[in-house]
Design a protein around this nucleic acid. Structure first.
Lengths: 152, 152
DNA sequence: TCAGTTTACATGCATTTGCATTCACTGTCG
DNA sequence: CGACAGTGAATGCAAATGCATGTAAACTGA
């Protein structure tokens, strides 16, 4: 079996660029879907991340780490989502400075609705392009990158 | 050799989610780098895409397809980049409605500078996480997705 | 050829974003 | 304790963004 040397700069950069461009191509197609007329992509992203939260409540700063927007932007986005009745906000128990956020029933329902369409479109877009095994490999590789980045 | 069936909905969705979350994790780390104090990420992205353009000139709508921002946003971003002396803008030859954009020398130099740092940081972030072969596999898979999406 | 449609980009305007800063609470060290 | 640095979120304000629309050029088909 051939040995795989430590990757050089060119290899990592080209792999990243390919990944990034693929993400852009998929996102552009997603953004145009009718579901995202109801709720902006970035707002959906907040609901989606909240839906993954084990206890249902997430700290604002923790949530922020999973998003590409700034802390003040998220703070105000949560304001808006709260006014729309999609999320709840409460002061954190252990730290009076912090706040915790969770989905309302309505927010959870909306996330599920949009998520379902989301997944359906993803499948119709992507499924023809790789085999089941290849998707598994892809996921294995990106999971490895993702988990490697978390502890740095 | 095992046969790989057509991928199911869950498989494609999970692979996408993993890819997307990895992209977010990398981007968050990139955004904080000092190079992006000079020029916003999105503006760099425009310069980068122009730098790839074979003839040096790119149509606005063509450029827009490689980005996640709206057409009016790009139109005004090009205004700003032009005022900063980083890009040139001219009316397209064959179509008086269209405009073509290219980097100035200064724009090209800035893109190269930022790009160099960009790549260096990418490498230090990612290289320890996969082998050379794995980066090759990753690139192969995302290239396949990307090229499959272009012709739809 | 010329009305009707489509395509490419620009603009008006309300909303959202980010940066810098502030405010409130926490933790530390003398 | 009590000043002081550190942390988490909110706010003022200028800049950037998107949607809807406008303008102009290019197609299209009687």
């Amino acid at each position: 079996m051939a040995e795989s040397s430590s990757p050089d700069v060119r290899t990592t950069a080209e792999a990243w660029e390919s990944l990034f461009r693929t993400q852009v191509a998929v996102m552009r197609r997603m953004q145009q879907l009718p579901e995202f007329k109801k709720l902006a992509m970035r707002e959906y992203d907040v609901l989606f991340n909240l839906s993954l939260c084990p206890g249902g409540w997430s700290r604002l700063n923790e949530l922020n780490e999973a998003l590409l927007i700034s802390q003040p932007s998220l703070s105000r986005m949560v304001d808006r989502l709260e006014k729309k009745g999609l999320v709840l906000r409460r002061t954190a128990q252990n730290d009076q400075r912090g706040i915790e956020i969770s989905l309302t029933d309505e927010g959870r329902a909306l996330q599920k609705n949009i998520g379902r369409e989301h997944v359906k479109h993803l499948h119709s877009m992507l499924a023809p392009l790789l085999t089941e095994d290849e998707f598994g490999q892809l996921r294995g590789l990106t999971d490895k990158l993702h988990s490697g980045l978390k502890n740095d």
